[in-house]
Design a binder for these strands. Sequence first.
DNA 1: CGGCGTTGTTTGTGATCACAAACAACGGAT
DNA 2: ATCCGTTGTTTGTGATCACAAACAACGCCG
Lengths: 190, 190
Amino acid sequence: MHGEIPPGEALTLRGIGKAYDVSMTPAREAVRRLVAEGALFLSSSGRVSTPALSNERIEELATLRALLEPELASRALPRAHFALIERLETINQGVSQVIARHDATGYIRMNLEFHRTLYLRAQAPAMLAMAETVWLQLGPTMRALYGRLNRTEPPYHHKLILSALKAGDEPGLRLAVRADATQGLRMLKG
Amino acid sequence: MHGEIPPGEALTLRGIGKAYDVSMTPAREAVRRLVAEGALFLSSSGRVSTPALSNERIEELATLRALLEPELASRALPRAHFALIERLETINQGVSQVIARHDATGYIRMNLEFHRTLYLRAQAPAMLAMAETVWLQLGPTMRALYGRLNRTEPPYHHKLILSALKAGDEPGLRLAVRADATQGLRMLKG
DNA sequence: CGGCGTTGTTTGTGATCACAAACAACGGAT
DNA sequence: ATCCGTTGTTTGTGATCACAAACAACGCCG
């Protein structure tokens, strides 16, 4: 999810087991779970690797983010008190710091934490789980995409999200979240 | 997914293995996968059962259907040729037959086949997979809900969907699909 | 020099086992 | 009669093993 593994990298059950100091059995169960969520790709011969997503698949996942996340944000809005907005602003400052460090994994992690912190207030666990499944599938790809993006500034849409939250502007919040979710997509064509 | 197992029913790895004539190992893997998709519930002690969904959770899953399925239908619309509509009408007749037979499982199966047949045309595998995950989570509950519903007629919204498809009416299609997806929800309050 | 078969190794699969935790049934004490 | 402790059974977990398929490297032949 955090882009620690590049797309298309092969994994072995024995290797995973060794990395976590367990036998093949727990490694297999974890892999099967991640395959079920689409986070790992299982070839017809049973080998597992991180998915190397096609452009069509990436667009589809971006569409899913654009469908799910505005709904989550909208549901979180009535419950977003000042303490939450303050936490979001703190996280957003952290995003600026990892950008300065050119830390791709850190950037992805902080960005997702920003979104998750907001969506947790939506009190919609099934919907949040779906959104996280999408993030999981996009993880390796986001890391690869981050390389093309030479970010120097913190994400613009996060500021829009914060002001919409403060203003209680539901349509504006939906728009800002949607834009932020699909923002990374633009790099595909280039 | 088809409601063959009522909500809250306990399953054992050895029992599943015996039912499919395999050892515990493949049964465990299958169970872990289904747990990851939310189709089965894993208690803190490791026992597995079909989920007994709260009303809030059911409403959430219905919302997810209402978000995902109109989008799938909309994407399928431009590719929906006459042969597809004909197939959908055939399936819909099958729905009428299982209703006459008071066959809950058959009804759910046919109903989902109707939707899946349409959505397959959307060429959006990730989105369809998400919709099917929702169906999977709702399976046992839908069976329980079917008991309260004394259907004598084929689903009204399916006809609306078919006419919207024939007319190429995209907004009407979205509305009809959304209504059909959330229709079963109304029985909750009663 | 390149294509292809062969061989040795890696890898996933399914079965089995020992173990500990959880559960259920029973019995005794209050 | 009810509560609680005890005991026997059920159940999930993780490890290990045998096996077959897949892969990769090498060498042979054209």
